[in-house]
Every structure is written in structure tokens, then in C-alpha cells.
Nucleic acid binder design. Structure first.
Lengths: 324, 324
DNA sequence: ATTTTTTATAGAAACGTTTCGATAAACCAT
DNA sequence: ATGGTTTATCGAAACGTTTCTATAAAAAAT
């Protein structure tokens, strides 16, 4: 493993000169720089990241701490992040191991994007207090080292409620997300407020944003659901679970009852009928989040933004109910 | 940022004693260890990874270098890898940026799992030559620093061909994968050999393992396909593209023609009819690959293994064709 | 021709650990 | 009590860079 020292010896110069040359400093003359670069290549030199980081305190790596990698969801988000990071000199790594906070605390990343990772509020604040720049995608936190780029659930969810209420549902079955989850809270609020304003009863069921929890909710909900009801799942994974269970049931989605989700996963276009859902641009989200983080790292200025959402109507919503 | 030095001063001992204490060396007495640990906690001490790595030449990080993160495919694989890595002291990071080879060459990872990343053969060999332990999931390479855990495409693909040939197809349309891709080559060989043995003509179409390329292939293929033909896509993403195109076409999948894929993605259970495909355990694949890599890192012994595959029959295969 | 300024390079310290070899204190057998 | 072992701790070097300060040589000014 050739180091800067070997290059220096080979070139007959000091190690500092080699360092300057390789880093493009104007302190070294162009002729010697070229000579040094050539020798470095011949020796197959690659800098030692650990040594450099030790001195400069920069890794030029940013970490995306995600809850899991499931679904096409994260793929699109990461695509946006990577796009934004291209040619910035920063490299992205995705972390979701149970011990991944080590990557943060031991300063292996210059900053982090956090979405759905099971960090507690205290951990996050501790990271920020220790001086790590963070961009949150899944909750709002006030801190000079934290920026937030959150989804604006209101717009899309209100449109979804417009569509649901227009069918005059008897009752709404609401399948909730994890307690305390920012998006779940926002989405639920719209459902509850709008339903109460329209005088429609809401019956709530526990959910965790997973397909499995959707299946569980559906099997309980089946006992009491009636023709003319609507099922609102706060995300598509759960809606998919409900869809699966409803396949072997007398009431038909889109005819007898309505089913809607949130996220507009690709798979909702393959169900029969397609599941109406709320869409938003995942790549844009990733891009904005990455940009916010870079700004935080380099200009030390935090910010707060939102990503718009939009309801996509589809056949899983039944025709107007002429009740009574 | 408190360091080992601050702890030493606070405890009135030398820095070497602190280091020994924190690393659980038996050289330091239990009483002082406890005292030092307590002080470390009070000072909120976190080790500096860069400094440690510089000295020990170990990062205790392993990298998964993937082509992209799309689909549920990678999610399940990574779950298996993370499971295997739990409690080993190694942490996983996922890398797919365009410049991610820096993470490897600059020794930010102790080893790497490679699947579908756009590294060239030369790059991989260079990594291995430089002493980086690698486990390949997508091609076979002989090298003391490389282990391979490859998918055994033969089993499942042969079963799939059994099912297809049983229907007596007029002609087979084969939608290929990327040229040179290990899995594509293996799968194609089975199709071509079995078809030729059965005296069935095979017509081949270009594909890239993406849905988009499946759509492209389908739109060309539509011009010539006839009732009684079978379409074999070498993966499910492409089969899904073909499925989409065929939705607005006169010949019906599972009735007039057959369509099969490979990978058994969840979404194939939502198409109408479900797409028959070849399944294999992605978590197992991840686990075995991770274990092989750890073994390579710690025992410096490489290995070669395969993961079995299995055909899952479904309604996208038409009934027997009583031709002639 | 001498002094001053600029330029190119060298030397050395520092980053925060780990770990080897040295030393002093404590223990043990005689 | 004495010498030999073991044990607990310390000091210093090393890992491979970056970067500050010093210095010698070259260029510019007088």
C-alpha cells in the first residue's frame, strides 16, 4: 500500500510537497505537480480516508438512515438524493442496521437524512447537540443543526376526503398508522375533522403502516363493515393488506364499499380494481432533503420545507350512495 | 468532543491505561476499569472511528454494493444480510452512488457484497488484488479474495420449461436480460436447450431486466405473436412490462398465450392472471453471502455456493395446446 | 551590487487512537 | 529479610495525512 511517503521518496521531495501537489494547492509549481501525479499513479496510490478524516474531520459521506428498504418507495427517494449529490464530492451510504447509530456518533458521516429509522427523539437531539447536521423527513424538530423536509399530507388527504364524502358513506373505517408518527397524525386529523364536519361516523382501527397490520385490521373490521361504508388506510401497504383479505369476502371494493390508501405505490395499479391513493414525488423529496442537508453542512443554515401531495382517483371508490 | 486524553486527565491515569480499560483488556484492574468507564460516560465519550481505523486498519463496516434499490427485491436480501451480521460487530452500509468505489479503495469498508453494481470485471479484480475481501452475487470470479454465492437458475428454470413445454407452445418468445449477465446467460441457456430438444422454435428479443425494456420488447413482439405462443421473460420486471402492454391486446394471457417471469416478485400475485415465475429465498441468499464474506475477512478462506430456485406455477400459463 | 520581496520547498507538529517495551509496585516462595 | 515473579501502570512510537512555520533560492527593487 503505497502512501504519500513513498511518493515523496520516489520523487525526491518532502511529504508536504506531495500533499500540496495532490490536493491542487497553488503552492507547488505545475511542473513538479505533474511529476508527482505521475509517480502517484505509477505507485497505484490511493489516499487513506482514515488518516485524512482524522486530520480534516470530514468524511465527505452522508448517510441515509431509513426504517427499512422495503417496497419501491425508498428506491425512488434514494434516486433523487443521489441525483442531487452527484458532483458535490459527497457520497451516499444507506444505513438501517440496529447499531447504525455508531456510524453517526463515531463521525463516519458528515451528516444524515433520517426517515422512519427507529431513532428516538432523545437520540436525535443528542446527535444534533453533538454537532451532527441532520435533515428529518419524518418529524418536525426545532434545532439549529436540524432541517426538516416534510410531506404536506393535508392537500392530498383533503382531496381524498372530498372524493370519499361525495359518495355519501354510511360510516368510515379508519386504519391508523403507528402512534406518534408525524404523517399518520397529520393524515388522521384530516380524516377525523372532515368526517365530523360532514356528520359521518368514524370507526378507528390500529395499524403500523405494514401490510401485516392491514391484514389484521381487515379481519377485525370485516365483522362489522356494511355495504356503503368506506375504508381509509393511512398508507398503501395497509390498504394492500385490506385488499387481500377482502378478496374472499362478499362485499366488493369499488361497488359495495370504498377503499383508499396513501403513497400511490406502483402495486396499486395492479389490484382489481385499482386502489385510489395519494401521490407525491419521491425523487423530489429526496432531492430537496439532500440539498437542505448540504446547505446545513456547508453554510450552517437550517431550513424547513414541505413536499406537496395529490389525490389520484381510481375505481376503488364506489359510486354515489343514495342512502335513506 | 471529549477524547481518551481528557478521560486520562480526569482519572489521573495514562492514556494507554484508558485505552486498555475501554477495550476490555485484562491488563488493567477491574476497579480502575470501572472508574474509567464511569468517567468516560460522564464526559460523553465516543471513540473516534478515524483514529482507531488509522491504527487498526479495520472499520468493522461491510458494504453492499447494489445496482439500484428498486423493488422489494433488495429489501428482502438486505434483511437477510443484516440478520447474519447482527452481533458480529460488523455494520452494514448500502452503496450505489456512481463514485462509490471510493468507499472501497479508500478502505472505508472491511469487505463488500456485490450484486448488480456497475463495476467492471477489471475494477473488481483490482479491488481483490489490493486485498479487499469480496463476495460476488452476480458473477463467478476466481480469486483468493473473492467468494461467490450465486443463484442456481437451472432448477427453477427447468421446472418452468417443463410447465411451458407441457402446453405444447407453437413458438417461444424469449425476452433476454443484459448481455453478459450471469443469471441471464444461465436462464437463457436452459430455455434454448430445452426448446431445441423439444423441437420448439425460439424467437429472441432484447431486454435489460427493466420494466421499460419489457415494454419495448412487448411492443415489437406484438406484431408477430400468435395464439398458442409462450412469452418467457428472464425476470419479473420485464414480464410486468409485457403484461402492461398486453392489457390492450386481443390475445389473453393464460388463455391464448402464456407469460412467465423469474424472481417471483410480490406484484406478480396481483396481476390478472397471476404471473407464474421462479422463486428463491432472498433472505437466505443475503445470509449466506454475508457469512461467506465474514469468513473471508476473518479466516481468509474463500468459498463457492449456490442458492436453489423453484418454479411457482400460476394461471398465466395456458391450458394444453392441442395443435395440429 | 546590495537589500528587499516573492516563491518553492522542507520540516515538524498535530489529529486520536492502539500497542510495544519499560518500570515500579506488589506478591510470593524461600 | 531476600531475591524472583507477577502485576498494574506508564511513556512513547506509530498509523497516514494536512497544514503551520521556517528556510533557502530566485526575482525584483533600489
Amino acid at each position: 500500500m503505497a502512501g504519500i511517503k513513498d511518493i515523496a521518496k520516489e520523487a525526491g521531495v518532502s511529504i508536504s510537497t506531495v500533499s500540496y501537489a495532490l490536493n491542487g494547492s497553488p503552492k507547488v509549481t505545475e511542473k513538479t505537480r505533474q511529476r508527482i501525479i505521475k509517480i502517484a499513479e505509477e505507485l497505484n496510490y490511493v489516499p487513506n480516508a482514515a488518516a485524512r478524516t482524522l486530520k480534516t474531520r470530514k468524511t465527505h459521506i452522508i448517510g441515509a438512515f431509513l426504517g427499512d428498504y422495503s417496497g419501491s418507495f425508498y428506491g425512488e427517494l434514494l434516486k433523487g438524493i443521489n441525483q442531487e449529490l452527484a458532483d458535490t464530492g459527497y457520497e451516499l451510504i444507506v444505513c438501517n442496521g440496529p447499531e447504525s447509530h455508531r456510524l453517526m456518533t463515531e463521525r463516519m458521516v458528515d451528516g444524515a437524512l433520517i426517515l422512519g429509522h427507529r431513532f428516538t427523539q432523545e437520540q436525535i437531539l443528542e446527535f444534533a447537540d453533538r454537532g451532527h447536521p441532520l435533515t428529518m423527513l419524518d418529524r418536525e424538530i426545532e434545532h439549529p443543526n436540524i432541517s426538516c423536509v416534510l410531506l404536506d399530507n393535508q392537500i392530498g388527504m383533503n382531496q381524498e376526503m372530498d372524493a370519499i364524502l361525495e359518495t355519501n358513506p354510511n360510516q368510515i373505517h379508519l386504519v391508523n398508522g403507528p402512534v406518534g408518527n408525524h404523517d399518520a397524525v397529520e393524515r388522521r386529523k384530516v380524516v377525523v375533522d372532515r368526517a365530523s364536519a360532514a356528520g359521518v361516523a368514524v370507526r378507528e382501527w390500529n395499524g403500523e403502516f405494514t401490510k401485516r397490520s392491514g391484514i389484521r385490521a381487515a379481519s377485525e373490521l370485516l365483522e362489522v363493515i356494511q355495504e356503503g361504508d368506506a375504508i381509509i388506510c393511512l398508507n398503501d401497504d395497509m390498504a394492500l393488506g385490506v385488499y387481500d383479505v377482502l378478496q374472499n369476502f362478499s362485499l366488493r371494493i369499488g361497488e359495495d364499499i370504498s377503499l383508499v390508501g396513501f403513497d400511490k405505490l406502483e402495486i396499486t395499479n395492479y389490484t382489481q380494481p385499482r386502489i385510489a391513493s395519494v401521490s407525491y414525488s419521491k425523487p423530489d423529496w429526496g432531492k430537496k432533503a439532500a440539498r437542505a442537508l448540504l446547505h446545513l453542512i456547508e453554510a450552517k443554515e437550517n431550513s424547513k420545507q414541505t413536499i406537496p401531495s395529490k389525490f389520484i382517483k381510481d375505481a376503488s371508490i364506489r359510486k354515489k350512495n343514495n342512502k335513506k
